[in-house]
Each structure stands twice: as structure tokens, then as C-alpha cells.
Simulated scan of single mutants.
Amino acid sequence: MRLFLPALVMIAFLAACSSGGRVAPVHHLGAVPHVGPRPSHYTVRRGDTLYSIGWRYGVHYRTLAHWNAIRPPYTIYVGQKLRLNSPSKSAAKPKQASENKKSVTKSTASPPLTTVKAVPVKKALSPERPTKVAHGIRWYWPTQGEVIQNFSRTEAGRKGVDIAGELGQPVVAVADGKVVYSGRGLPRYGKLIIVKHDANFLSAYAHNRLLVSKEGDSVKGGQKIAEMGRSGTDRVKLHFEIRHHGQPVDPLRYLPE
């Protein structure tokens, strides 16, 4: 019994030490626009556009513009306080929005469905493959590689598809449009490009190494706009999303076979 007690004391001591030690942090590297309930307001920061703010909080840019009495070309200002939810009738006063606009400093940044269950896909992709016309838009694949993660309507970080590839390989616009965001101001997206295709559809290309196109550029489907990288993630890949009326949809519904 005397020999057994010291061993028990030593085990208890080691257990106490281990329980007080540090726990390795867990980093979530998926492309998550915003976690938790949407706040009621957002204060514009340098580099923001109405499109990038709408993307982050899952609101159509035209809806944000309507809620905040902002007219095309949707110019916003550093320090401007934007409403992120529908205002009450008594609060929706254009005069207040005008006064708010006068009290802030102009930003140096450029102005700014129903889903289906994803099916596991493993195939080679290429921008040279045939296009597909859907909703009046001719769609291309955004890059060449294997789809390593599919879309999920419910799981965080899976609001698009992930495509594996090589560092520096071309990333192309999936359809004709205009670049409305080019930068790395959205958390967990790394170097990101957002392209507006029409009044309803936007597409986004995340984790790039190099952004070739800048805000305001008009691009054609199949045109190189970036180079694949690993910015904001743990491996080289492209995270690609399509938004319809501000909401994520499965890109595989629109891209060609």
C-alpha cells in the first residue's frame, strides 16, 4: 500500500497539470461570409462596396440599396451606417439617408431559388469545354481541376464548390459581366473577385494568389480574371459561388456538364 500511494499522487499531479494547459486553437478556414444573426446595421469601412457587404450578409445589393435609399451607381462612403434589415415604414425616410451621406467621408474604393441537393462530383473541368445557357446567361467553368467539395444549403463554409488545382493556374469569369469587387476585405475568402452578370446573378472567386481584374472592369466569359492560390485557406484551391437575388445557389445547376 505504501508503494502504491506515491504512484497515485503522481497520476493525480499529472492530470491536474494537463487540465490547466493550453488547448490548440481550431481555425475554420472555409469561406463563411457571416456567422450568427445578421446585425441591424453595418458601418462602411475602407475598401467596401455595396456588393461586398451584401455578399457578406446574404442580402441582394439592390435590396440593401432600397433599404438605405441609395441610387445607382450605388456609391457608399467610409463611416456611413447602412441598415441590414427592412426598415419600418416610419423609419424609411429618404431625408435621413441624405443627411447621413453628408456627414461621412467619401471612400477611395470604387463604387461598388431554390437549391437542390449536391451530388458528389469528380471530373476534370476546363474553360474550353462547351458552355451552358441558363437564365439567359452563357456559363463557363471557372477553372480546371477536380471538385473536392460540393454545395450545401445548410452547412457553413459550403455555399459554393471547391475546385482543386495548381498554384497560379488561370481562373476565368464564368460569364460576361462587370467586376464589382476585387480585394481581400471579406473574412475567410482571401483574395476575392465578385462579378455581376445581370440584375439577378453574381459570381465569386476566392482564395486567389493574384487578382488580374480590378473593380469596374468589364469581362467576358472564359476571360482570365485571377490566378489560383491558397489565400485565406489551408490548401491551393478555388472556392466558387453563384448568388441569385443575393442567396447562394448550387453552381452545378448552372455550369455546363
Rank of each mutant, 00 (worst) to 15 (best):
G216Y: 11
S213H: 11
Q80G: 00
E241A: 10
K123H: 10
G157I: 10
L82R: 03
K117Y: 06
R235Y: 08
H66R: 15
V59R: 14
R235I: 04
F4V: 07
M10W: 11
I163T: 02
S90H: 02
S18K: 14
W55S: 11
H207R: 12
L8Y: 02
P111R: 03
G190W: 08
R153G: 08
P248Q: 11
G20L: 11
S152E: 07
A164F: 09
V161G: 04
G165H: 03
S18P: 01
Q80C: 07
F4N: 06
R129W: 10
G30F: 06
R253T: 11
V78W: 01
L255R: 00
K214Q: 15
H244F: 11
A124L: 11
R243P: 03
S218M: 12
D250S: 05
G30P: 02
P87S: 01
L192V: 06
T115Y: 01
L5Q: 08
Y205S: 13
S40P: 01
S86Q: 15
W141V: 13
G79S: 02
P39H: 04
K81V: 15
R56I: 02
G21L: 08
A173E: 01
L8W: 00
V26R: 13
N100L: 15
K117F: 14
W67V: 10
Y57I: 04
K122E: 06
G145M: 04
R230K: 14
S19L: 14
S98M: 05
F4I: 14
P120Y: 07
G185N: 15
P187E: 07
I163P: 03
V9F: 15
R138I: 02
I70K: 02
K122P: 01
I76G: 07
K102L: 11
G47E: 14
R22L: 15
A7E: 06
E166K: 12
A92I: 01
S86G: 07
A156K: 10
L84G: 04
L29Y: 12
E227C: 06
G21D: 12
L211C: 12
E227G: 09
S19V: 09
A97I: 00
D217H: 09
Q96G: 07
G185W: 03
H60T: 05
K237V: 01
K106L: 13
S98C: 05
V78N: 02
G145A: 06
V133W: 03
P33A: 03
L64M: 11
V180H: 06
Y205C: 10
A92R: 00
V147N: 07
A156H: 13
H135A: 15
I242M: 11
V219S: 00
A109F: 03
F151P: 05
V23L: 11
R22N: 14
S110K: 12
F201V: 13
T43C: 04
A199T: 09
L211K: 06
K101A: 14
R153C: 00
V78K: 01
R158C: 06
N100P: 02
